[in-house]
Design a protein around this nucleic acid. Structure first.
Lengths: 344, 344
DNA sequence: TCGGCAATTGTAATGGGTTTCACTTTCGCT
DNA sequence: AGCGAAAGTGAAACCCATTACAATTGCCGA
């Protein structure tokens, strides 16, 4: 069962392959009668051009590689969904590469994508700490970016200047903190992620900054470091609750952590939001799936993805783009926070 | 910046491209000195073979297309993750195609994947009712399956005989029902999905069968039809609760629905599992993220994915495979169900 | 020293498109 | 009618690998 080729169509239509190619790509005028004859044959033979051959000669494949650390983490599918929606109409298809957080695999995938001649790469750094990874990988990424358009989403490689699309996480943390304070909270704890990651550092800094600006003190034990997981949220919340001097609100570095914290509170019989308010970050679907629904800072993940595509597309088209694009997060007030005005 | 080709390497090494190709693919003996000389050059020039060219001549691309209805639904990333883990070591890369439940797009993607010369296709039917879709699409899928190895996961196209990997959903529903009964429940409600979908029909049938087998009656109003969404779970649970005659347990067609139901109960001040037990289906991560953690029937999504890959791989290798592979689900008891033994 | 087989290596065809360049028609206009 | 421009088309090179087939070399035992 051999594949029908452009040659078969050409022969059948008594024209050259060039002409068939022209009607296929609309790249030059073709007489109407010729065109329709060819189209009929294409239809009849169910001819489908071989994308490999096309890619080989055009040096463009209409394919984009998306690298992410974990498909199973709801954050990424949301971003991917934004990428897809935006790029599909541009005619792109996607290689999805899940590195399961393994730098080794990142580098492997980078190679594979180059070999497959993708038109561009979107690298979802997400919560992974790119700044701590092996220098070889940094080189590898930079090297790749020199040859293929590459956009980093929510990540950074210090010492390099790659194209990036990021959420303004500092701003988000500021908004969340200020919101809690405006709601009357005075004693607020922050459950952070790994302390060596920039996303944690940024948020901690923002948190302290706003507290200070409002004349509030942040004692050392009110900032707890974990690892972004639900489990760590649960564990750290338990630590907070075991203390007789309990804060009235807890700000979590991400929704996963917040959900863990929430669970810990419920299990301990502490009412949320009545006894303690909890606020998360990201607004993954999970946030509104639970009870009480989580107040959180929404990262517009679909927009993050869509924007990354736009930037990448411009790079591919060799148009001018800003190196850095910042997406603003927004507060989503739901049920896990309560105003303290009454009780102050 | 022209790409380094096998010709460049060959010329530099004073050998023919054939020889270079041979060391690249280890397809014939090459003298050690020659080999190492070539390897050194490959390294030095950072030569990477062009996968398009290779695919074109080998007629195999090491690429698999995965079609699914919604990346954003946690069920699918889980399956995808299983696919990836299994297939990566076999050297495959994946095109991820999200149809957002649109039949039009399914057909588009099928075409694109054919053009891109994928080695095989994994079609995640999931909760989408393939049996109701347009006949053209059925033809399209069958037609594709005739040309390219194709495996259907958790789906079916009546009137066709495609290779399939499915979860034994009937069995799962039986187990769940029996478990509730064994726990002492006598009055159980079932919140189903759309009534025209096979997955719903199968589970409803299994539910009634087991109830009957245990001498229990299922009144008409104890089976409610929704649409698999959280919202419908919430709505239908409210309906159940508005009735003064309330069941002691509710079995939900999937976890999403169950989470909605759980939320409705909590909001209504009905304790779970103290006042009412709830059991779900799938065991998506969400199930164990909420409080109380959801008792559910686990679909082994990673195994589903991994198995699909194994079947597909055998098809690609033209080995013999069974048309149908069934994965057995298993009960996961957590916190949302309670034994009624005491109160009976 | 010679035939024969294995080990190495090269030549050229092949896979299926796109595209440059050149050539032939066909028009529009003067 | 005559001319230049535009339309329409084809031949052949090119993209970058793999591979069938052929050729050469090296080493063995006789």
């Amino acid at each position: 069962m051999k594949q029908v080729t452009i040659y078969d169509i050409a022969k059948e239509a008594n024209v050259s392959v060039a002409t068939v190619s022209r009607v296929l790509n609309n790249t030059a005028p073709v007489k109407d009668s010729t065109r329709s004859k060819i189209m009929r044959l294409i239809d009849e033979y169910q001819f489908q051009p071989n994308a490999l051959a096309r890619g080989l000669s055009k040096k463009e494949t209409g394919t984009i590689g998306v690298i992410l650390p974990d498909v199973t983490n709801p954050f990424f599918p949301e971003v991917f969904s934004g990428i897809e929606r935006m790029a599909r109409d541009m005619g792109y298809t996607f290689f999805l590469c899940d590195t399961i957080g393994d730098y080794e695999r990142e580098s492997q995938y980078l190679n594979i994508l180059r070999e497959k001649q993708v038109d561009g790469i979107i690298f979802l750094g997400g919560r992974i700490n790119l700044s701590k990874c092996k220098p070889e990988l940094v080189d590898e990424v930079v090297e790749t970016a020199n040859r293929i358009p590459l956009v980093l989403v929510n990540g950074d490689l210090p010492g390099t200047s790659l194209y990036r699309v990021i959420t303004n996480e500092s701003k988000g943390a500021e908004i969340a903190t200020q919101y809690l304070i405006d709601s009357g909270h005075r004693d607020i704890a922050f459950i952070a992620g790994n302390d060596n990651m920039t996303t944690t550092a940024q948020k901690v800094r923002a948190f302290k900054r706003i507290m200070k600006r409002n004349g509030l003190h942040v004692s050392g034990e009110r900032v707890l470091y974990g690892d972004f997981s639900m489990a760590s949220g649960e564990r750290l919340m338990n630590r907070i609750l075991s203390n007789e001097d309990r804060p009235t609100a807890v700000f979590c570095v991400n929704d996963f952590t917040a959900v863990g914290a929430l669970k810990a509170a419920m299990k301990a019989g502490i009412g949320v939001p009545d006894d303690i308010s909890i606020i998360g970050f990201d607004d993954i679907p999970l946030a509104s799936a639970i009870y009480p629904e989580l107040t959180t800072v929404k990262q517009q993940m679909d927009i993050l993805g869509a924007t990354a595509v736009q930037v990448l597309h411009k790079l591919i088209m060799k148009e001018n783009v800003k190196k850095l694009t910042v997406i603003e997060p927004e507060l989503v007030v739901r049920e896990s926070t309560l105003s303290r005005d009454a009780i102050q």
